[in-house]
Design a protein around this nucleic acid. Structure first.
Lengths: 346, 346
DNA sequence: AAAAATATTGCAATCGATTGCCTAAATTTT
DNA sequence: AAAATTTAGGCAATCGATTGCAATATTTTT
């Protein structure tokens, strides 16, 4: 029953005693076949349960109607929404999506990219892993004549199409909001500074402090606190200081903010009255924690669509252009309970 | 710069003034090429930045080293873990994964399957959508000689390989646990009964009641309450009854349980003392709600690995076998605060 | 040194679909 | 009715890699 040969255009041709080229033309609705034979061919194709072979088709056409996506993790809200946005547009255009996870490993990321090159996809959409050390694999994509769009976590120095958020602006807004709520000793949980997005968020934090003439305190700036566990650990240390912070900006993610929240709760620092907490990314859970977490929404689904639109509306049309456009999307601060004090001091 | 021709084995052959077949053999490490030319070819391939073309290779070999996955949603913990498990094994075997979302739509699911058939993948791994109405598209997969593994949400009547959980057993355990905590009027939030998994969980609920001689109360069994919103709506109704339930088993998901929790909190039913709540699937958030939610863990990553192992260890070896094995994985009850009473009545 | 065995390499067909070019048939024009 | 034009369909090459078979080169055996 299984593994029998699949029907090809030659099978159809043989059965009808015509040439395979006519079958191909009929299936592609070419005007070079008469209406009657076209009908006959389509009928027979259906009878024989014919399914076209993408491999052969794409090989011949020299292009694959497929877009490859490489993200660190698909189970983060931000990335799964990006993918949802991409899907919407790509399917409408008759393209397919191949999704790969780097699991935050540079090595794995290189592997994913290699595979996509082998598959001969027409475009690779990537957000680099936290371990990012060099751009060789990305340069290779371009060298193979494959389009490349970086988003969110981009390798800044590499000239490619980019779709990004204005991280600095969002961070400034978040921290300004906290200052307006009367917080003055605002700690920063930094992400790995090899990634531009985390450098930008730090810059936004510093800018907000400067604008409001709040002094920068070095001991309140914690490096590499970008997971829930690291966020918790950092918070334990911060809250044990002689002069602990009165707020924490977990600039890397809501996961990190969640770690802050749990430690604060267990150490008896009441959020938001004694300690304000702000996260980043608007994960689904940030709405349902107690208290709910103030965070930054990145319009991820919209961003996914923007990436796909960029490909279909601009890149695909002018594949040899060397003008690399950067699209920037303004994120939005979502104020929830974790930074809303009942009584604002001062 | 861009879109130049990619290097093929013929380019390498021409440069070295040898036949393409030798190049192919060298790249495949065949013993039919001398060590010296092999070395020369590999060196040249590297120089010219040669990347093999999967399309051509797979077309020739008549098989695609790719496995297609169709799931309702990739941002649910259960499914993203399945995918993580699949990835681990498939990559180790040099296979690729193409991931598709049906978004719970039958039509979309049919589309995804069609696409995977066109791609000529060697195996399709699928968990059917909630709208599932018929098996035609799945039969078609088999008719095309493509392997098919159903998991979790399976079309029971269709004979294929299956990897499932013992839903009935897990539901029985969950409800028994609630009965042991002294709950007696336990409501059931059902999932759509066209899916076997939801029928099985209901059967498990009924079995537990029977075993403990707890009467079944029809008004406590709510149909189709399988999202957060529907769970909330059902709970509002249940808690307004003259004799409201003292516990709710949200058999469909933790999302539904979350809806229960929110309504219970807002209506002043204290969880777990006045109302016990149990979910299903062990979403990440179920640990961090207040109170944390008792749920059923399905060993999703392990399940993903089991699916891939089934393919590589059994199906791939004997592709024409018509003995369809079913692998069953026993899920585990995770008891958290939402069902743990301080004082067990009676 | 000739014969036999083995190791290398090349030729050409193949996978399935597409497409430029050419021929034959049908239709229109003169 | 012959010539010109249009339409329909076939032939064969092509995309890039693989592989059975044949041919040549090298090594081993006698």
């Amino acid at each position: 029953m299984k593994n029998q040969k699949r029907t090809t255009i030659h099978d159809i041709a043989r059965k009808l005693n015509i040439a395979a080229s006519s079958v191909s033309r009929a299936l592609n609705n070419s005007s070079k076949v008469s209406a009657s034979t076209k009908e006959l061919i389509l009928k027979t194709a259906k009878e024989l349960n014919y399914k076209q072979n993408f491999l052969a088709q794409n090989l011949r056409k020299g292009q694959n109607q497929t877009i490859g996506v490489v993200v660190p993790r698909i189970n983060q809200n931000f990335f799964s929404n990006i993918i949802a946005g991409l899907e919407e547009v790509t399917y409408k255009n008759g393209y397919n999506l191949v999704i790969c996870q780097s699991n935050e490993s540079h090595e794995r990321e290189v592997q994913c990219v290699e595979t996509l090159i082998h598959q001969h996809v027409s475009c690779i959409v990537i957000s680099i892993s936290v371990e990012h050390t060099n751009d060789d694999h990305l340069k290779n994509v371009l060298a193979q004549g494959i389009q490349l769009i970086q988003f969110d976590r981009v390798a800044q120095d590499l000239e490619t199409f980019k779709v990004i958020n204005d991280n600095e602006q969002a961070a400034t807004e978040a921290v300004s909001h906290m200052i307006n709520q009367g917080y003055r000793r605002i700690a920063l949980l930094e992400g790995p500074q090899n990634l531009a997005i985390f450098r930008q968020r730090k810059a936004g934090y510093l800018r907000a402090l400067e604008q409001h003439r709040v002094p920068v305190v070095e001991e309140l700036i914690i490096k590499n606190a970008w997971t829930k566990e690291l966020g918790a650990k950092a918070t334990r240390k911060l809250l044990s200081l002689p002069k602990p912070p009165d707020a924490v900006f977990a600039s890397t993610s809501d996961f990190s903010a969640l770690g802050v929240l749990e430690v604060a709760n267990s150490m008896g620092f009441k959020v938001p009255d004694v300690l304000g907490v702000c996260g980043y990314s608007n994960e689904a859970f940030s709405e349902i924690t107690t208290p709910s977490i103030t965070t930054v929404d990145q319009y991820s689904k919209k961003m996914g669509k923007a990436i796909a639109d960029l490909y279909f509306e601009e890149i695909k049309e002018a594949p040899n252009s060397t003008v690399y456009k950067t699209v920037s999307i303004k994120p939005k601060l979502i104020v929830r309970s974790s930074t809303q004090r009942k009584n604002i001091p001062g």
